[in-house]
Design a protein around this nucleic acid. Structure first.
Length: 401
DNA sequence: TCTGGGGTCCTAGGACCC
DNA sequence: TCTGGGGTCCTAGGACCC
């Protein structure tokens, strides 16, 4: 039985939030974003979009297009609050709500629409009630899979509503330019165009006949895309929050730098920040990745394992410094415009005792490894923890998959 | 005044073990 | 001494999304 998946996307979310806070901004061209040397537009209000402004654009370019636009700095904490009230509104209809980002999400409405004679007016009123209650406008896509729902919600903006059935795919999606295929970005679309694929319909045909060039270009994604366009993608809405796989922060430098001394303050800030976010997430990191962006906008990175899992800002900064030096050495001390640190290979501190020791083992000289491992186990582990952890390991090995 | 910051997933290649 | 393949773990870089 086909599910009823809704994708709901808040229109010009940051700008809407600002208008809600200060209604005198209504109807004005607004640019929400940072203004510094490398500021970009996070969100442009629809009035600003009429001038060609859009998110991701350098702020100075947007201002050239629309000099009278009002620039407002991003207030992420406030938008996060508004986002929460948006998602709790959705939960009135179903608990199967999956946030996809701060301003969009999926909801499994299969139960909610059951027995409704006129689903369209049901979604229409869901939309207008949200607007009435919170001031937030949204576009809604309804379809049997998440990908189709996402594509549907993009079809009409703002305040759009599109119900897309499998049989509507050729009519509604095939005519769209290849660029609007979710998952095909600005690197892949020109390559597809070179192969004569200009529309989603062309793309679908190529995938369905198993075009070798296209498959080679897309790799594993070819199979996924083929399923999506046939209406067979995932329809599982999972309300449970996933564990983060990495926690990182980066910052564009006030001016281009070359030495560690010049960027040390940035590293202090970044280390503090990710350390505290790691604590909030209840995680520790087994590795860290330092990255620098050179003047040609290329990103270079260097992974550095910790001796044992940590979230200490002191250790993070120390390790980042080491990695930075190694990276700059390898690159020949280029000028850089951005630095970043990310914590990776995150673990739950309480449950990782055994793995932690095994990890340490890899860090030691091979010849001493066994001895050190035994010492480590004796020193670090209380017996019950050891028992629990090894049982968990056993369970994992014997478990499914 | 050229182009942010938060992520996820994929790929290719290397190290190491059996 | 040479050859070799499979599997796992890790790294660096890139594509994509909001």
């Amino acid at each position: 039985m086909a599910k009823v998946i809704m994708h709901i996307d808040l229109n010009a979310f940051f700008a809407s939030c600002e208008v809600i806070r200060d209604p005198s901004l209504a109807g004005l061209p607004l640019l929400i974003g940072h203004t510094g040397r490398s500021g970009i537009v996070s969100t442009a209000s629809y009035e600003a979009r009429a001038y060609g402004c859009h998110s991701g654009q350098p702020m100075f370019q947007a201002l050239r297009l629309c000099p009278k636009a009002k620039v407002i700095p991003v207030d992420y904490d406030y938008y996060s609050m508004m986002s929460l009230s948006f998602f709790s509104y959705l939960k009135r209809f179903t608990l199967l709500v999956e946030p996809a980002s701060i301003d969009e999400g999926f909801a499994d409405m299969s139960e909610a629409v059951k027995g409704k004679e006129d689903p369209e007016s049901f979604f229409r009123s869901l939309q207008s009630e949200l607007k009435k209650e919170t001031g937030l406008g949204c576009s809604i896509g309804v379809a049997p899979t998440k990908w189709l729902a996402k594509m549907a919600s993009d079809l009409k903006k703002p305040m759009g509503l599109t119900i897309l059935r499998k049989k509507d795919i050729p009519n509604l999606l095939y005519p769209l330019p290849i660029e609007s295929f979710w998952g095909v970005g600005k690197k892949t679309s020109p390559r597809l165009r070179e192969m004569g694929i200009a529309s989603i319909g062309d793309f679908a045909q190529a995938l369905l006949r198993g075009d070798q060039n296209v498959e080679k270009e897309l790799g594993k994604f070819a199979l996924t895309a083929k399923e999506w366009i046939q209406g067979y993608g995932s329809d599982r809405v999972s309300p449970l929050e996933e564990d983060p796989k990495s926690i990182g922060a980066q910052e564009t430098l006030a001016k281009d730098c070359q030495t560690y001394e010049e960027v040390e303050l940035y590293f202090s800030r970044l280390a503090e920040e990710i350390s505290s976010r790691c604590l909030s997430a209840g995680k520790e990191a087994r590795s860290l990745t330092v990255s620098v962006k050179t003047l040609d906008f290329r990103l270079h990175s260097r992974a550095m394992p910790f001796a044992e899992p940590t979230r200490s800002s002191v250790l993070i900064k120390e390790k980042a410094k080491e990695g930075f030096r190694a990276l700059m050495d390898k690159l020949g001390d280029p000028k850089i415009r951005q630095v970043g640190i990310a914590l990776t290979r995150l673990v739950d501190p309480q449950r990782e005792t055994v793995q932690m020791s095994l990890w340490n083992y890899q860090d030691y000289e091979r010849k001493d490894a066994t001895k050190l491992l035994i010492e480590e186990l004796n020193r670090k582990m209380d017996k019950p923890m050891l028992k629990r952890a090894s049982q968990a390991e056993k369970g994992k090995k014997n478990g499914n998959r």
